[in-house]
Amino acid sequence: MDLTLKVWRQKDASSKGKFETYSISDVSKDSSFLEMLDVLNEQLIRENIEPIAFDHDCREGICGSCGLFINGRAHGPDYETTTCQLHMRKFKHGDTIVIEPWRAKAFPVIKDLMVDRSAFDKILQSGGFVSVNTGGVPDANAIPIPKEAADEAMDAATCIGCGACVATCKNASAMLFVSAKVSQLALLPQGKLEAQRRAKSMVAKMDELGFGNCSNTGACEVECPKGISIAHIARFNREFLKAKIND
């Protein structure tokens, strides 16, 4: 298939970006979105144009490195899919595809389609860990954990930190990401002990870094490649308010 791509090009964080239009022909419908961009980059190199910079790593949908805003949607038109797992069969011959980077104050553009997501790391460093000494491996079933709690913690832990929630949120809020980290730890015995302190410090960090305020539109859970539920946000709110009331 032949496609027209409108791609955001930006030299560096301080430069002003703009869209460039490229044509690409004979794209295989079986190629992934990133493979299509690889082919485009080969073409650009041959034409002596600087190739487009974009983030990627595992290309298996599990690392959270890739992330493009494609035709107005985080990770493109498919549901529960990362950009690397999006395939060109989702597009038609002759389509024009608009490709933008994640846009948020807390995710500044590094170059072209690459953004700096270290804000997520900073949030994790502020409390997304277990600092109590948990000792050696306990006997099986020595610490009973209800299956529902284990399942929910596991669901929250599937977050790959790609930032699609922030990218798609009309307020560029990081609540889904932070709530997934809070849930994952607060539901299990080791993490429960620090749940309140964690919620407080992660909220403070998230606010400080310039993420917006959640208005519960629910767009994040729809665009999340791992389908993480906003029910975690309710738990996060609960943990935070409990902690603040206890202060």
């Binding site: 009309k170 560029a172 629910g218």
Partner: peptide
């Protein structure tokens, strides 16, 4: 929180 807006936005299918 979002100084630069998106050019293409398709919000209807998620909220």
């Amino acid at each position: 929180a979002r100084p630069e807006k998106y050019t293409a936005r398709s919000a209807g299918n998620s909220s």
